[in-house]
Amino acid sequence: MSAAPLLSVENLDIAMRLPDGGRLPIVKDFSLTLQAGDTLGIVGESGSGKSLLSLAVMGLLPPAAIASGRILLEGRDLMALDDDGMSRVRGRRIGMIFQEPMTALNPAMTVGDQIAEGLVRHEKLSWKAAREAAVDLLDRVRIPDPRARAKAYPHQMSGGQRQRVGIAIAVAMRPALMIADEPTTALDVTVQAEVLEILDDLCAREGMALMLISHDLGVIARMCARTLVLYAGRRMEEGDTRGVLTEPLNPYTRGLLRAVPRRRVDGAPLDTIPGTVPGFARLPEGCVFSDRCGDVVAACRAGEPAWTQPRPNRGVRCIRAQQEMPA
C-alpha cells in the first residue's frame, strides 16, 4: 500500500522531568500503526502509562514530559506542530472521549451549545445551523427527545447521557481517529453496553479509527479487532484480539486473563499475579515483568527483551515466547 497509514507512532519514548533534574522514563520503545477504520484496544493497568500515551497522540502531554520519536497522523509529524497547528488537528482530525464526562463538559453551558461550539469554530457554521446539527448529533447518540435535551445543562443529565454528549462532541467534527480513554469505566454495565454500542455504530458508519484505552479486557474484546497489551510503559504483546485473548504469548497477558474472576468449581483460590505493578522508579532489572513472572529464567533479568514478531500481525516482548514459539 502506498498511502501513509492513518496513525503511525514510531519509537516513542516519554520520560518525566523530575524536580531534581533527573528523568524518569515512562513509555519506552513504543510503536504502532493504525489504518483508517481500524479498532485498536490498548490494555493496561494503572501505572502502565496508557493515559500518557493517549495524551501524547493528542499533543496534550504535561509540561514535565519529554517525548522523543515520531507520531505521524496522515503522514504529518504531530510532534513538530506548534500549539496552533496541534489544536487544529485535535477536534478536527482526532476526537477524544474522556473517562469522566462531567469534568470534560462545561457546567455553565447547555450541552447543545457545547456540541455546536466546535462546529462554529472549526467548520465556520452559523450558530443556528450548528445548533441544528447538535440536535441531530444528540439523536445519533440516542438521546431521547434531543431537541429538548439540547437545552439541558450537564448536571441535569445522568452519567450515561453525559458520556453520550461527550461522544457527540467528539464525533461532531467527523474525526478520522477517535481516542477513547476508559470511556465507560464510570458507568453501570447496562449503560456501558449502550454507550459501547453507540460508539461501535458511529465508528463503523463514519469509518473512524478507534483507539480504545481500557483496563477491562471484556470491553476490549467487545470493541476492538486488535489489542495491544501495555505493562510499565512497554508493549508486551500485540495482535488480533481473539488471538491475544485466547492464545496469549506473553506471561503477563496470560496472568491477566487468568486473574479475571470466575467461579472455581473446586473451591480453589483464584489465580493471581503476585505482587503489584512496580512504580516507574522501581522497575526490576531486565524484563520489567520479571519480578512478578512465574516463568522467569535468569536470562530475563539479564537485559530487557526486544520487541519481536513471531508471526505476521503478532508482536511480543518476551524471550521465552521466542523460544517456545512453534516454527
Binding site: 518525566m16 523530575l18 524536580p19 531534581d20 515512562i26 469505566t185 512504580g279 516507574f280
Partner: peptide, 25 residues
Amino acid sequence: MTAPASSTPLPTARRKSPGLRLATR
C-alpha cells in the same frame, strides 16, 4: 488509568530532599 491511580502523582517515587524543596521555592 483508573481514577484512583491517577491521583498518585508519578514523582512520589523519588522523594525530594528538603534542601532542594527550599531552593526551588
